[in-house]
Design a protein around this nucleic acid. Structure first.
Lengths: 334, 334
DNA sequence: GTGAAAGCGCTAACAG
DNA sequence: CTGTTAGCGCTTTCAC
């Protein structure tokens, strides 16, 4: 078994209290004592027991990250950033996947783990904001994504309406007139797709252009491909598609290229999220680039603030985004 | 604060022992008592305290996943599979990133967290197998990837030499004669790239063809792009590139297409890992598809077996792979 | 500056 | 079948 405080204390000829002081570094200890104790700690390879600290102090040093899926490039990047930056708060990240399922989200929110972590960072798809406010006493929760919970929950996100408006305006500015949107998810309560659709419609309305919206089941490449195929079969003449995620856009792009379309000549394609794939696609994908490091920092900071003051006013943090214009939406040279 | 055993016991008019029995379900409890206690548990919303259980029982229900980076599609997919399947073992996954850095790997392996988890699943890049065997008493470790630790460590992997041989033979069979390999990492002790290079050389030797190896710094798309650019500038005439990861291949593909090359007409491109990107690239990427679900299952099973018997003989588990032939290496129609 | 001891919530050995 | 209780390793209050 591993070494404990008492063994270190005995060996160093001091009490456990003193060893504890040396380890935590807070209380005053005579320099000579401190050095002697430290030597014994190194010698014995003493490591404080996390379970005992947790039990005693009520803090585990663990933060749960609850995501629809880690394999998605967007969430993968975000998880990586969060894991790295969590270190500044002495937190370790624990990841749990929901598949976007409401039942599973509920389960993870109410489960044993939710009480054993210092906080949760979650990107809900299935649960509505009002569902999310109804939770028995588990750890503080910070949401990723715009969630209209009537100011009752902390959340961090970009301004999706604005980003979508900007993207659609860009497509219009490059001379496109028949612009389809791929990515509405009518079956989800999650408002992100709805907000992007709102921005899309707004820009089209400004220009007096008609909207053409193609719903999808999920947000994978295959869904983008299927939507593009449906769009094609519908006979709709389209000169641009705005996809609500880069994955959808890459799927759509794949189908367009396979059908022999010239992108951006015949069809412009824009995405959302700025995943690495999109930068190396051919043509490279125009996209909305959220400031992901800022998003990760904001989420952690928000959680940290909440822990410091449980009764503070819930925050709504908006992080920056940037329209990243690449080859897939270049203006037609006609 | 939250409810504990004692409060449930008092309310139900039984001892903590009985409540504990009801919760764990192991010991015998009279049906009437069980029901009464269960009702109080539900009423009070009692949830067992993970810290106390951990302290008492020595098991945290946590498994650390130590990876170079979560944002990489391959590791993202694997992490997702592991997180899902860990549930069958009642484990929650905790993820830590190393960036492939040896110091960081050491740190995570020896740190406090490594003692507070039931086990670790790790994909080492910086530490050599012999480094990995030198560990003070932390939790059991299962390695991902072929690690020649002289049979001292549990590890699960595909047969990299075989997979690379197969891929190279395929390129030769489609009529390619000047086949470059992109992805050696001479600065890393990790043997994976070396094994793939071995398979590549073997197949070339069989056919009496020369090898042309391009090293890379890391395994991102940008590195593949840089390698392809260097290859081009070197003036080497090449009709196929075998990249040791799909990310490298996608970077190389991007550069090739940007230079106006026809893929697969002028140049065949093959990758490794079967990430979703590759399937939707244009042309779709030929690749080695490891059986990732099997890999995840094997790693968890291996860890579970190790926990059950600390002194069992270390295992070397080999999971299946399949050469997935797609458009990027189609035979030339000349 | 340092020691003694209580107690966080749980499990399981011991008693009945 | 159920009650009582020691103790997992740590922090911290209280004494000295």
């Amino acid at each position: 078994m591993s070494v404990n405080l008492r063994q270190v204390a005995e060996r160093a000829g001091v009490s456990v209290r003193t060893v504890s002081n040396v380890v935590s570094g807070f209380a005053l200890v005579a320099p000579a004592t401190r050095e002697r104790v430290q030597r014994v700690i190194d010698e014995l390879g003493y490591k404080p027991n996390a379970a005992a600290r947790h039990l005693r102090g009520g803090r585990s040093g663990l933060v749960a990250l609850v995501l629809p899926e880690m394999a998605s490039p967007y969430f993968g990047e975000l998880a990586g950033l969060l894991a790295d930056r969590a270190e500044a708060y002495a937190w370790t990240l624990l990841v749990q996947q929901t598949g976007g399922d409401a039942g599973r989200e509920r389960e993870l929110l109410d489960g044993v783990r939710a009480q054993a972590v210092d906080g949760l960072i979650m990107s809900p798809w299935g649960l509505s904001p009002s569902d999310l406010t109804r939770r028995p006493g588990s750890a503080p929760l910070v949401l990723l994504g715009e969630q209209d919970a009537g100011g009752l929950l902390d959340h961090v996100a970009i301004d999706n309406v604005d980003a979508a408006t900007e993207t659609t305006r860009h497509l219009i500015a490059t001379g496109r007139r028949r612009i389809a949107a791929i990515g509405l998810q009518p079956h989800l309560v999650n408002g992100t797709a709805a907000r992007r659709a709102e921005g899309y419609r707004r820009a089209l309305a400004e220009a007096g252009l008609p909207a053409l919206e193609v719903p999808v089941e999920r947000l994978h490449r295959a869904d983008g491909a299927a939507a593009m195929t449906r769009l094609h079969h519908s006979g709709a003449e389209v000169d641009a598609v705005f996809c609500f995620s880069d994955q959808l856009a890459l799927g759509a792009l794949h189908v367009a290229l396979s059908r022999g379309l010239n992108v951006p000549g015949d069809l412009a394609v824009a995405g959302f999220d700025d995943i690495e794939d999109g930068r190396f696609a051919h043509p490279a994908l125009t996209t909305i680039a959220p400031d992901k490091p800022a998003l990760a920092d904001a989420a952690l900071k928000c959680l940290s603030d909440r822990l410091a003051d449980v009764h503070a006013e819930p925050k709504r943090l908006v992080v920056a985004h940037r329209l990243e214009i690449r080859a897939s939406t270049a203006a037609r040279t006609s």
